[in-house]
Structures are given as structure tokens and as C-alpha cells.
């Protein structure tokens, strides 16, 4: 299973990939995760790959190889489209964040990304920010999306909940568990 998580630096994609990696490990698979640290984390496009199966060699996912793409932002979902396997699923947070070339007017943010994606992929969309606000903190949007992803996998819900309990700092646990439930229930 190849899962690609894309978003904007600072959105919490690393936490999502780590939760997913631990869930896959607990389910008995060989797992590899490839992360990005350093400069590109500063508000740039960020991509993490999570791969699990009987035996995993390369930690990266190439074009046309992702079974699921979990996108934290619309434009990043659109950018990641070539990586999706034909017939694959995209789970997309409908949040829009303008990149600097759009802010400065050097480039245009594409219109109607959701419609365009829906033409070629199995698309699931969600307003994770609103759900996270309902859970008590907009920063928990990443865990809302993890909840939504959990529903698309065959792993039992309890394994996810248990992993979140062991990954998230105690003072944020309540908000994050609520955020997960809201995502799972979407």
C-alpha cells in the first residue's frame, strides 16, 4: 500500500505520516516512511510517503504509484495528481492557501480544482478546518484527515485510536481524539 501525504509546511503532515506508519507497523507490515525536514518545511510544498506491505525496498513513491493521496490543501492535491495510481483515491481538505507566487500576482491559483480532480479520480473532500474548530483547535485538522483516511483502510478503528493516544502529547489528546472521531464519521 502506497500512501502519499501532501500539504504545506506547518500543517502537521509529519504527525499524520508517523501515526499512519505506527498503525501499519502494529498491523504487522514492513513499513517505510520518507519525510522532508529543513528548508522546504518553511511554508513550502511538503510531501511524505508511507509505504507498507510484505517487504518494502524504496521509501519513495513515483508517478502513478500512490494508492491513496491524502492532501491537506487543494493546490497541493492538484500538484500531486500525477502520483496517483489510475483508479486511486484522493482525500482532500478543501482549505485554500495561496503560495507566494499567487500572493505576488506572478501566478494564478487554478479555479475549480475539486471539479477537475473529480473528473479523473475517486475523490473524497472534507472541510477539515471546520471540523477541527468544532473539536476545539484548528491545528487538529491533520487528525481530522487521519480519521477520514482511517475509514478508507482495512485497519480496525481501535488500532488508530490507540496509536493516537501514544503519539500525541497528553495535553492535546482530548482535542485530537475528538478530531479523529469527526473525521472518521464524515
Amino acid at each position: 500500500m502506497n500512501i502519499m501525504i501532501v500539504g504545506v509546511g506547518g500543517q502537521g503532515t509529519l504527525l499524520a505520516s508517523r501515526i499512519l506508519g505506527r498503525v501499519a507497523t502494529k498491523s504487522g507490515y514492513d513499513v517505510k516512511i520518507s519525510e522532508v525536514h529543513g528548508m522546504s518545511q518553511r511554508g513550502g510544498s511538503v510531501v511524505t510517503y508511507v509505504k507498507y506491505g510484505e517487504k518494502i525496498y524504496s521509501p519513495i513513491i513515483g508517478e502513478g504509484e500512490a494508492d491513496i493521496i491524502l492532501a491537506f490543501e487543494l493546490l497541493e492535491a492538484y500538484r500531486a495528481l500525477p502520483y496517483l495510481k489510475k483508479g486511486g483515491t484522493m482525500i482532500v481538505n478543501t482549505q485554500r492557501m495561496d503560495p507566494m507566487p499567487v500572493i505576488t500576482g506572478a501566478a494564478k491559483y487554478p479555479d475549480n480544482i475539486e471539479e477537475k480532480l473529480a473528473r479523473s479520480v475517486d475523490l473524497i473532500t472534507a472541510d477539515a478546518l471546520a471540523a477541527a474548530a468544532e473539536a476545539g483547535n484548528i491545528r487538529a485538522a491533520n487528525v481530522v484527515l487521519i480519521g477520514l483516511l482511517a475509514k478508507s483502510t482495512e485497519v480496525e478503528k481501535d488500532v488508530w485510536l490507540d496509536t493516537i493516544r501514544r503519539t500525541v502529547p497528553p495535553r492535546f489528546l482530548e482535542v485530537n481524539l475528538k478530531a479523529f472521531e469527526l473525521g472518521y464519521g464524515m
Partner: peptide
């Protein structure tokens, strides 16, 4: 050659890193 992947319908603006 790998199979031709899915493509966006228009150029996707880059998102370079920025100061927070």
C-alpha cells in the same frame, strides 16, 4: 517506459518555502 500518469489540466503554481 512507465505508463503516462494523470496530469493537471493547467500549470500548477509552485509553492516555494517562505519565512513564517
Amino acid at each position: 517506459e512507465p505508463e503516462e500518469p494523470l496530469r493537471a489540466e493547467e500549470p500548477v503554481p509552485v509553492r516555494p518555502p517562505v519565512m513564517c
